[in-house]
C-alpha cells in the first residue's frame, strides 16, 4: 500500500457565517481517478478551493505527498470552472495554453519558441490545433473547456484538480476530455474531478467521493456507488434527478 497523494484532516470552511464544509477527512491514493459528487451547495467547489488555498479554511490541514501545499504547488494542476474567468479577455487559445508553462518559463521572462510549440502540441492533443490563433471569446463552451484542459496538460503536474470540466460541454468534448483524463491516469497521474452527472460516474471514475458539507462516503466506485449512498448524499431529490440508477 503506497502512501496517499493527498490527506485531508478535519478540514472546515465557511462563507461569511454559513459553514460549507464540516470536518472533512479523506485520503486519495496515487493514480486514482476520483469523482467528487454531491447536490448543489454541497461544497464541492469550496472543497477544492480550500484544499488549494484559494479559500480560507477554518480548521484542519491538507498534505500533498506528505508536504504542505506551498511546497508542492508546482506539482499540482488546477482547472477552474469555465465560468470563473472572463472569456472576453483579448487573447487567443494558444496564449492561454502557454500560461500553463509560465512556471517553467520563469517569472519576468518571456516564453520561447519551444514553449509555444509545447503549448500548440497540447492544443492538438485536445483536438484544438486549428483554433490556436482563435480569439477565446469566439470559442464555444466545449472548446473553451478544451483550452483549459490543454493548459493543465502543459503544466505536467502529478496531481490534477478539475472543477466541473464536463459541465455544459458538447458530447465530442466530453469524450475528448475523458480520454485525456484516462490517459493521464494511465501514466500514473492522480486526478480529482468535481462531477455533476451521476449517470456517467461508473463509466468514468474508479473512485467516488460523496460530499454533502461533510464526507458521506468515499472509496472505490464499485463498492461505494450504491443507491444507499446516493440517497444519503442527495436526500429525497435523487428520484427526480437520476431516475436511471
Amino acid at each position: 500500500m503506497s502512501s496517499p497523494v493527498i490527506s485531508v484532516n478535519n478540514l472546515s470552511a465557511a462563507y461569511q457565517k454559513n459553514t460549507v464544509l464540516r470536518n472533512v477527512n479523506f485520503e486519495i491514493t496515487p493514480g486514482s481517478l476520483t469523482a467528487i459528487v454531491g447536490p448543489n451547495g454541497a461544497g464541492k467547489s469550496t472543497l477544492i478551493k480550500t484544499m488549494l488555498n484559494l479559500h480560507p479554511s477554518l480548521t484542519g490541514e491538507v498534505q500533498y505527498f506528505g508536504l504542505p501545499f506551498k511546497k508542492v504547488k508546482k506539482r499540482i494542476g488546477y482547472v477552474p470552472q469555465r465560468g470563473s474567468v472572463d472569456w472576453d479577455f483579448p487573447t487567443d487559445a494558444l496564449d492561454v495554453v502557454t500560461m500553463g508553462l509560465y512556471g517553467e518559463v520563469g517569472w519576468l521572462k518571456r516564453p520561447s519558441k519551444s514553449h509555444k510549440k509545447q503549448a500548440f502540441e497540447a492544443l492538438e492533443k485536445m483536438g484544438m490545433g486549428d483554433y490556436a490563433n482563435r480569439q477565446i471569446s469566439q470559442l464555444s463552451g466545449g472548446q473553451q473547456q478544451r483550452v483549459f484542459l490543454a493548459r493543465a496538460l502543459v503544466q505536467n503536474a502529478d496531481l490534477y484538480f478539475m472543477d466541473e470540466p464536463l459541465a455544459g460541454v458538447d458530447a465530442a468534448t466530453e469524450i475528448a476530455i475523458m480520454e485525456t483524463l484516462k490517459k493521464l491516469n494511465a501514466i500514473g497521474k492522480t486526478v480529482l474531478v468535481v462531477h455533476h452527472d451521476l449517470q456517467t460516474v461508473e463509466d468514468y471514475f474508479d473512485h467516488v467521493l460523496f460530499l454533502n458539507k461533510t464526507i458521506i462516503n468515499h472509496g472505490k466506485t464499485e463498492k461505494v456507488f450504491t443507491k444507499d449512498n446516493i440517497t444519503r448524499a442527495y436526500g429525497g431529490n435523487i428520484r427526480i434527478l437520476g431516475g436511471g440508477i
Binding site: 488549494l52 484559494l54 488546477y78 472572463d86 479577455f89 519576468l108 516564453p111
Partner: peptide, 22 residues
C-alpha cells in the same frame, strides 16, 4: 512592461496564477 506576462496571467485567471506560484 517588465511584468507584462505576469499582469496578463493575473488579470485573466487569478486562481490559476496562484496555483503557478504567482
Amino acid at each position: 512592461v517588465i511584468g507584462f506576462k505576469e499582469w496578463k496571467l493575473y488579470l485573466f485567471d487569478r486562481h490559476f496564477a496562484n496555483g503557478l506560484g504567482l
